[in-house]
């Protein structure tokens, strides 16, 4: 018994001493900044930064001058912290939010081909003859996106439309991955003008099948009128290049179906009407003179 304790104890001591000596002798200098940044990062190891883990990203920041704002879950607070460690200026990352590119609102507004009574998820519904709704590109309306959202950012209003709360949305891409029709795009929160249709059907067809009557019919009006050439026709669908978009709202004005969303559309229309009235009044005044 005592022999066992002595032998095992001696063995442990020997190994311990050996490792202690080895750690001194084979000591490798590691930049303490790497450890500090690793601790500042959220340790989610989510890979959103493009590195295999938080530690790898921390190493890339210190060793290869990687940008500081790549950590999506950490947000601005973490960027600030890292910047303080690195002695650099904090440049907050562009906040991104999800945009659902369909206005039909799924099952509530859409015209059906058949009555679907299966499991109430989009993934299950799409398996049966490509989904019950007539438009084979649009929202199915079984809320896979809302149930995938961990931040409770997607709610459904009384018309069955999915509303994305821009404050709560973190741009984590979970909903975009959950949508079997790939209707959700993650765009910069600064961008306000969106083309809210994903139908590649020909104009007449998409106009007929859209539950909300706001389909892109591929008329190319927006493409012609866009001052920055930010819109391109891709297979009967207008696609907006967000990098070029200046949010002038002209496309939303000219769109005959209302497929393009501009939050300032009404204000702009009002201003234009006022300007018109003024011009008319001025013309009248000139005539009277």
């Amino acid at each position: 018994m005592i022999g066992a304790i002595i032998i095992l104890g001696a063995l442990g001591l020997l190994y311990g001493l050996g490792l202690a000596v080895a750690s001194k002798k084979f000591h490798v200098e590691i930049d303490p900044k790497i450890e500090a940044i690793t601790e500042a990062l959220p340790s989610a190891n989510c890979g959103a930064c493009g590195y295999p883990g938080c530690a790898a990203y921390a190493e890339a920041i210190v060793m290869h001058n990687e940008e500081l704002n790549k950590c999506a879950p950490g947000g601005a607070a973490v960027v600030k912290e890292i910047a303080a460690i690195m002695g650099k200026e904090a440049v907050a990352a562009d906040k991104k939010v999800a945009v659902i590119k369909c206005q039909s609102g799924g099952k509530n507004n859409t015209i059906f081909r058949y009555e679907y009574q299966g499991v109430t998820t989009c993934k299950a519904a799409i398996l049966i003859n490509n989904g019950p709704n007539l438009c084979s590109w649009g929202c199915l309306g079984y809320n896979d996106c809302a149930s995938a959202c961990k931040f409770d950012a997607i709610s459904i209003d009384e018309n069955g439309m999915r509303i994305i709360d821009k404050e709560k949305c973190t741009g984590c891409v979970a909903c975009a991955k959950a949508c079997p029709r790939n209707l959700i795009e993650i765009v910069s929160a600064k961008k306000r003008v969106h083309i809210l249709c994903s139908s590649h059907d020909k104009g007449a067809e998409s106009r007929k099948v859209c539950g909300n009557k706001t389909a892109c019919i591929g008329c190319s009006m927006c493409v012609k009128k866009c001052p920055k050439a930010a819109i391109e026709m891709k297979d009967n669908l207008a696609v907006l290049n967000y990098d070029l978009c200046i949010m002038c709202g002209i496309c939303a004005d000219v769109c005959p179906t209302g497929a393009i969303f501009d939050p300032l559309k009404e204000i702009r229309a009002k201003k234009r009407a006022e300007a018109k009235l003024k011009a008319e009044a001025a013309a009248k005044a000139a005539e009277e003179k």
Partner: peptide, 12 residues
């Protein structure tokens, strides 16, 4: 302990 030791040696 062996693995730990080997790791240190290789790192150096």
């Amino acid at each position: 302990s062996l693995v730990q030791f080997v790791e240190m040696v290789i790192q150096k």
